[in-house]
């Protein structure tokens, strides 16, 4: 149980989430990738707090911020999915390419 082990697990979660967010065609699965990335950030924040600065509360506050960011990401993401599905019956990322340069 060392800082490095914690951070390696967090980095693995972050990378897996990044892979999922980049590869998934379904918008819901893409959001799962984003959630997994934030999951890694939570773990890293907890590890940094415990192993480097347990006297302060900044690590805990950072976890609160990340958890809130997760909730916002889910809510806003599903609202966008609903709106885009209603407008164009799109549920795959490849269908929503209007902004492609």
């Amino acid at each position: 149980m060392t800082l490095q082990a914690f951070l390696l697990a967090a980095a693995a979660l972050f990378s897996i989430g990044l892979f999922g967010a980049l590869t998934q065609q379904s918008i819901v699965m893409l959001m799962m990738g984003l959630e997994l990335m934030l999951n890694g950030v939570i773990l890293a924040a907890a590890a940094f707090w415990y192993f480097l600065a347990p006297a302060g509360t900044e690590g805990q506050v950072l976890i609160v911020v990340v958890v809130t960011a997760m909730a916002i990401e889910m809510a806003a993401g599903f609202a966008v999915v609903t709106a885009i599905y209603r407008a164009k019956q799109i549920d795959m990322t490849d269908g929503a390419a209007e902004l492609q340069g």
Binding site: A9, L13, I16
Partner: peptide, 10 residues
């Protein structure tokens, strides 16, 4: 478990 199940998601 966290990493394995995270990978299984996809």
């Amino acid at each position: 478990a966290a990493v394995v199940f995270g990978g299984l998601v996809f």
